[in-house]
Design a protein around this nucleic acid. Structure first.
Lengths: 118, 118
DNA sequence: TTGAAATATTCCCATATCGGAATATAGTTC
DNA sequence: GAACTATATTCCGATATGGGAATATTTCAA
């Protein structure tokens, strides 16, 4: 079984670093494809292909304006990633974890010393 | 060029749905490999392999206790995902966007009507 | 209608992946 | 040190991928 398709969900789509850069660029505001081409300096087909994936998973939305296609970030879909990560919030805010970690490190250093002296 | 390695960064590691489930399970607290095996009901080598990826990118940490290996979530690494997504926060909290979106939808409906009447 | 601009799609290929099965390794207990 | 427990690693094959190059499609303008 191969890896899950990039179009399976926002997590897979966002795994590709270049697609993250596209989103970051669009964070500045709605932009046509050529805007991204010039800002990022990548070949146009490459931009279009990445946009296609982002659009399929709903991370960006598009509207047509003349012969241009203006892409923009879709907040709701990005929120889903944010919400998922938020579920681990206590692991970086709670002071308790740092204390526990320090204790563990000390314990490890202790056993380390013991090992070295053998 | 194939897809970026899953061990490139937390984003790639977390793309795999099963690895997300492993992390969610570990959110309940430190747990040995067999704990995950019994909780998730997947083959042990599968759990070990996913843990290996998560560990390589630093999303989990491990400590040995007898013959068991206790895995736990690493908050700092998960925070990096949270922080990245947070950069788009205004796209789901800011009221302005919803207003703009509604205006755009209206405009689209308008041109839609025009098209239908032709 | 012909042309040009803006964007999307197709075809190709080298490659990392996930799962399954089997096996290897480390630590414990007797 | 033999048996056992807990976990990790290896080997395998099918598959979707991302980039490059070329090409197709859509839209406007003259």
């Amino acid at each position: 079984m191969p890896r899950a398709p990039t179009t399976l969900d926002p997590f897979n789509a966002v795994a590709e670093p270049k697609r993250r850069r596209v989103l970051e660029t669009l964070a500045h505001g709605e932009m046509p494809v050529n805007g991204l081409v010039h800002t990022l300096g990548w070949p146009q087909p490459m931009i279009s292909k990445h946009l296609s994936v982002l659009k399929e998973v709903g991370l960006v939305a598009m509207r047509q304006k003349g012969r241009q296609r203006l892409y923009r970030v879709n907040g709701q879909r990005l929120k889903s990633i944010h919400d998922w990560a938020k579920m681990f919030e206590r692991f970086w805010t709670h002071q308790l974890d740092r204390i526990k970690e320090r204790a563990e490190r000390k314990a490890r250093e202790q056993s380390q010393k013991k090992g070295e002296s053998i």
